[in-house]
C-alpha cells in the first residue's frame, strides 16, 4: 500500500501540489492524467521519494519513503531527464542499471532494446527524442521494480513504438504483477490498460476512480432548449452549447436508464462521452489568474 497524506510541494510561492491525499493499493496499473502544469511530475517525484514534500508524508508499506534506502531500492522512476550521463553508451547505461538493481532482468532489457531497434552502441547524447524515450521504457520495465513510475515515457515515440510499449507493459505486468504509475496526455490510446485513473487539476486530485467507472459517466443531452434545461435539473453540468432553439448540455452522470428512456420519448437525444472527452470537460474550467498563494 502506498499512501500520500497531505502532500504539498511548493516552489517559492508557487504551489505545484496542494495537500494531496491518495491511497494506492499495490500491483495495480494507474494512469495519471492532468493538463500541463497540473502538478503530475511534482507528485510523481514525491511518490518516488526524489523530492521531499514541503508538507505531508509519503508512506510505502507504512514506512516513511523519503531518503529511505529500503523504499528507494524498490522504486524505478523514469522521467524526462532519464537521470543518466549523456556521454555514456546505451549498453553501459543498461549494465549500470543491472548492477544497481536486484530485480533487473538483463535478458528482458536486451529483448526490449531489440524490439525498439535501439542501437546500444550509441551514446545517450546521440539518441533521438523517441529513442531516449525507448531507453527510458527499457530502464523502467526491465527494472521490474515493485513501484515503477513512468512519467510521459512515450514522448517522441511514433505510433508503432507506442503500440509496442503498451503491449510490453501489459504482457510484462501480467507475468510480473507490480505497481505501475504512468502519466500521459494520450488518454485514448492507453486507457484500456489502466485499472484506475487519477486526474490532477491545479495541484489537487480532482478524481481517483476505476477507469471503467469513467466510461459512459459523462452524457451529452441534446434537444429543444426548454426540455434539455428541465432534464438537466439536479445534475452537474460540465459543458453547454446552444444553436437557435437547440441546446446541448454535457452532464456528469451516470443517468438513470428510465430517465433516459423517458427523455428519448420526449424527443431528447443522448450521447455517452468517452474518457478523453470527460477529462477535457472536467479539467477545462477557467483557470484563476492568481495560481500562487
Amino acid at each position: 500500500m502506498i499512501e500520500m497524506r497531505g502532500v504539498t510541494i511548493a516552489y517559492g510561492r508557487t504551489v505545484a501540489v496542494d495537500g494531496v491525499d491518495l491511497t494506492l493499493p499495490v500491483n495495480t496499473i494507474y494512469g495519471l492524467l492532468g493538463r500541463n502544469g497540473s502538478g503530475k511530475t511534482s507528485l510523481l517525484s514525491a511518490l518516488a521519494s526524489y523530492r521531499r514534500p514541503s508538507a505531508g508524508t509519503v508512506l510505502v508499506d507504512g514506512e516513511e519513503a523519503f531518503e529511505n534506502p529500503r523504499v528507494a531500492r524498490r522504486v524505478s522512476f523514469i522521467r524526462d531527464t532519464l537521470d543518466v550521463s549523456d556521454s555514456e553508451r546505451v549498453r553501459c547505461v543498461l549494465r549500470t542499471a543491472g548492477r544497481l538493481r536486484a530485480t533487473w532482468d538483463a535478458d528482458y532489457a536486451a529483448k526490449l532494446s531489440d524490439m525498439f531497434e535501439l542501437d546500444t552502441r550509441k551514446r545517450v547524447s546521440a539518441l533521438s527524442r523517441g529513442q531516449r524515450s525507448m531507453l527510458g521504457v527499457v530502464l523502467g520495465l526491465a527494472s521490474r521494480a515493485p513501484l515503477t513510475i513512468l512519467d510521459e515515457s512515450y514522448l517522441g515515440m511514433d505510433a508503432v513504438a507506442r503500440t509496442l510499449f503498451y503491449r510490453e507493459l501489459l504482457d510484462d505486468y501480467l507475468s510480473h504483477p507490480r505497481t505501475i504509475v504512468l502519466s500521459t496526455h494520450l488518454i485514448e490510446e492507453v486507457a484500456d490498460l489502466f485499472e484506475r485513473v487519477i486526474i490532477m487539476d491545479r495541484g489537487r486530485v480532482l478524481l481517483h476512480d476505476e477507469t471503467d467507472a469513467l466510461r459512459g459517466r459523462g452524457v451529452t443531452v441534446t434537444g429543444p432548449a426548454a426540455l434539455v434545461t428541465a432534464f438537466a435539473a439536479g445534475h452537474t453540468v460540465l459543458g453547454e452549447q446552444s444553436l437557435g432553439g437547440v441546446r446541448a448540455l454535457t452532464l456528469d452522470g451516470p443517468l438513470d436508464p428510465d430517465d433516459v428512456a423517458r427523455g428519448e420519448r420526449d424527443g431528447l437525444a443522448f450521447g455517452p462521452l468517452g474518457i478523453q472527452d470527460l477529462f477535457v470537460h472536467l479539467t477545462s474550467q477557467p483557470r484563476p489568474l492568481e495560481a500562487t498563494r
Binding site: T28, I29, Y166, R167, L170, D171, L174, D192, L193, F194, E195, T211, D212
Partner: peptide, 17 residues
C-alpha cells in the same frame, strides 16, 4: 482472466470484473 486481458489488450482487473 489473463488470457482474455492479453488477447483484448485490457487491464486484467477489468476483465476479472
Amino acid at each position: 482472466t489473463n488470457q482474455y486481458a492479453a488477447f483484448y489488450r485490457i487491464n486484467p482487473a477489468t476483465a476479472a470484473k
